[in-house]
Design a binder for these strands. Structure first.
Lengths: 119, 119
DNA sequence: CCCACACATCGACGGATGTCAATATCGATG
DNA sequence: CATCGATATTGACATCCGTCGATGTGTGGG
């Protein structure tokens, strides 16, 4: 090469690209957020979440959720577990029945973050 | 059974569950939204989207995006294709270079929908 | 005490997904 | 035209994911 690296100006090193106007999402934040989105990225889980949120009192029992889908009971149980383990659904047992409720915090944070990228 | 079905009251048919306070997300809407969330549900794609949005002028060329990750060029190209095909990133070729820009509409809609489930 | 019921867990299977190396395409340049 | 550099496509591979049937767990009732 005819020039030493230290002589390269910024314009020469970025011939095609515009500079950054703000800090992009850090890798660590992306790794933390992606699992939440992955939990939401399924039609059945989206409907489950919405169905729980639509119930009066903010909670729904599993027997009611099972009936809303043409899927086996273990499959619904699996989806509820996924939503529960990532913090989007809370769980409480009362007698024989199990009730799930939407945790509003994570969902609101996600919505703000997604909407915020569009600026 | 000792009673005919028409004699069952609502209370008897829903012993454990609360009624619905509003309409849940229709299945068709869930099927339409889930692919967008699936596209977002990857740390690399989240960072790609944020990185494009962070560039001055709202667009970034691929060579710049490649350098931001420890991944092969085909892998970045694949992720950009996923984001482009679901409508989250726009693409324009200028000379040898390809520029991607964030489409604000779908992202804003998604953010509102996610935040809206929490009510 | 045993059974029925509500829900969770396990194991298996097929299909989708993220990654890479190799190769193709396509515009610019000499 | 030959070549180079930027980006896309292809094919292969390992892994992950959604689904089911079978089974386990715990509670309430007779």
């Amino acid at each position: 090469m005819s020039k030493s690296l230290v002589e390269l100006t910024p314009v020469e090193t970025v011939a095609c690209c515009a500079p950054l106007g703000r800090q992009p999402l850090p890798a660590a934040a992306a790794e933390r957020i992606a699992p939440l989105l992955k939990a939401l990225a399924d039609p059945v889980r989206l409907r489950l979440l919405s169905l729980v949120a639509s119930h009066v009192g903010g909670e729904a029992c599993v027997c009611d959720l099972n009936d809303a889908f043409d899927l086996s009971q273990p499959t619904i149980s699996h989806h509820l577990k996924v939503l529960h383990e990532c913090g989007l659904l809370g769980r409480s047992k009362r007698g024989v029945w199990v009730y799930y409720r939407v945790e509003p915090g994570p969902l609101a944070d996600l919505g703000a973050l997604i909407g915020g990228v569009a600026t």
